[in-house]
Amino acid sequence: MAGDAVHPLIDAELIEQVQQFSLRIALAGKGGRLAEQKTSAKGQGLEFADYKPYVAGDELRAIDWHIYRRLGRLFVRVFEEQQNLPVYILLDHSASLFCETPSRFSAAQRCALALGAIALQQQDAVRVFPFADKLNNHFKALSGKHQLFTLAEQLQHHQPVNDSDITAALTEFAGYPLRKGLVIVISDYFNNSGMSAVLDALSLVQHNKLLIQLTQPWDADPRHLQASGDVRFEDAESEVTVDLQLSPAVIKAYTEAYQHFNQQLSQYASDTGTGLLQLDASGAILAQLSALFEKGMVA
């Protein structure tokens, strides 16, 4: 079995630590396999939900004979059916995630693997959708702890792609007839069309959403770039360059622009009850994921 071998992406310590966490959403979509997530489906399960009048075809074992003796009518017990949670991991592998050291993509891989491991641990279905210039839906859903190696394999081999379009990927994903679940979007959310277009695309996705924003320290504070004077910024995905003098005024203007950029994303998350984690790609993954679960940011 492939899962017996140690995958280079799998950090055993990280996987062990994240096992203590669990992914829960308020109501998973119906139609899945029996698992730990509550669904709106009534049927097989352990927790009693309600009574309903017996109709032909109902399970005879569900008839409550005590009520029949008292009321003379047949009622059947209805149980909440617990099914697995579909977890859709949208992993950005555009070139912008590869251009720095340490790369944002490396953090994205580890984060996706950690969250995927949690889902697999609780028998949920995990499906990876890599995207850059377009959405890749070739990977099938994985379920069960033994699929961790396969999940790592699906996360590992991705090349940087220029001219990415997160809005197109989200829009395409929203059009898929998928069972309602949890969508984890791991990206830097930089988009040439602006944050508004990204948020519009996110609104089309009718799933519970968890947004992982990959950041670097110099995103918020350019002084970490350790540059001064005349600077030429080259875009990682395009040929666009910006020549400027890294004066205090320019740094101030950039800081304000970045704060507005983040504020838009945070406001969206707040308004829609979407989980949001700003993951520092240069920092420790586990500590930041712990903060995610402690704050209950997962819907």
Binding site: S96, L97, C99, E100, R104, D188, F190, N191, N192, G194, Q216, D219, L225, A227, S228, G229, D230, V231, R232, F233, E234, D235, A236, E237, V240, T241, V242, D243, L244, Q245, S247, A249, V250, I251, K252, A253, Y254, E256, A257, Y258, F261
Partner: peptide, 24 residues
């Protein structure tokens, strides 16, 4: 004269916005 320092960043979008707004 000294050539500018070349930095490759994830996106220059925000730097472009900064240039549009900064007095620089």
């Amino acid at each position: 004269k000294a050539q500018p320092v070349i930095l490759r960043v994830a996106s220059v979008q925000l730097w472009q916005e900064a240039l549009q707004h900064a007095s620089a």
